[in-house]
Computed example of a mutant assay.
Amino acid sequence: MAQERTGEATFKGNPITLVGPKLQPGDQAPDFTVNLNLLEETTLKDYAGKIKLISVVPSLDTGVCDAQTRRFNEEAAQLGQDVVILTVSADLPFAQARWCGAAGVDRVVTLSDYKTRSFGEAYGVLIKEFALDMRSIFVLDRDDRITYVEYLSEMTEPPNFEAAIEAVRKLL
């Protein structure tokens, strides 16, 4: 059974339980299996050799998640071809595709953790009470070593965009 962590995060001030380990800078990033679309799965290995910014959101259909994903989509243009920005949520792949089309988001890769919650458990962001992934940011170097982590303590708060982008730039 996966580790459960309490007292680290809230949703609108109410405590929530996170499932999985609390990763730290210096840790080797765990592998995961998520969906690109309904039929096609992808893993961390599929982005080998790239610097990865993994932006985790509970659902693209909420205001903070929408703003977070749009912001990283804008930043992607300035980061170049050596960087991939992955947005992970438990939204169905259909919903992710619809949202990206409506929002004009075309530079981030949306990945769905809906089927197995593999990402959520491996990265310690699965919210037990909601079966959603907690807002967080992970920056991985080309060798999949974690160089930056931000676990948000309140689900409705935005991440520190500047710190995350700076962590990516340090790897370029």
Rank of each mutant, 00 (worst) to 15 (best):
M134S: 08
K12S: 13
L53C: 13
S112Y: 01
E157R: 13
D113V: 03
I51Q: 01
A48P: 02
M134P: 01
S153G: 00
G120F: 05
S153N: 08
L92C: 00
P30L: 07
E121L: 10
T62W: 03
S59W: 01
R70H: 11
Q81T: 09
I127P: 04
R142G: 06
T42R: 10
R107D: 07
M1Q: 06
F94N: 08
A97S: 06
I51A: 09
P159I: 06
R107K: 15
R169G: 12
G104H: 02
A67R: 15
G80E: 14
C100V: 03
Q3D: 06
T87G: 01
L172W: 11
L140E: 11
V83C: 12
E157Q: 14
A29W: 06
D46H: 13
S118E: 00
C100R: 08
I137A: 07
F119D: 07
L23Y: 01
E41S: 14
V57S: 08
K128Y: 08
I51H: 10
E75S: 11
R71S: 13
C100Y: 07
R71F: 11
V109T: 15
V168C: 15
A95F: 01
R70K: 15
N73T: 05
Q96G: 06
S153A: 12
A48C: 01
R117I: 02
R142F: 00
V139K: 09
G49T: 10
K50H: 14
L86P: 02
S89N: 04
K45P: 00
F119C: 07
G49N: 10
L38A: 10
K128Q: 13
G124L: 06
P30Q: 03
E154I: 11
G124V: 12
G20H: 02
T147A: 09
A90H: 04
L140H: 03
I85P: 09
G80L: 11
G120D: 09
L92G: 02
Y151P: 05
R71M: 10
A9F: 00
G120C: 03
E150L: 07
A164K: 04
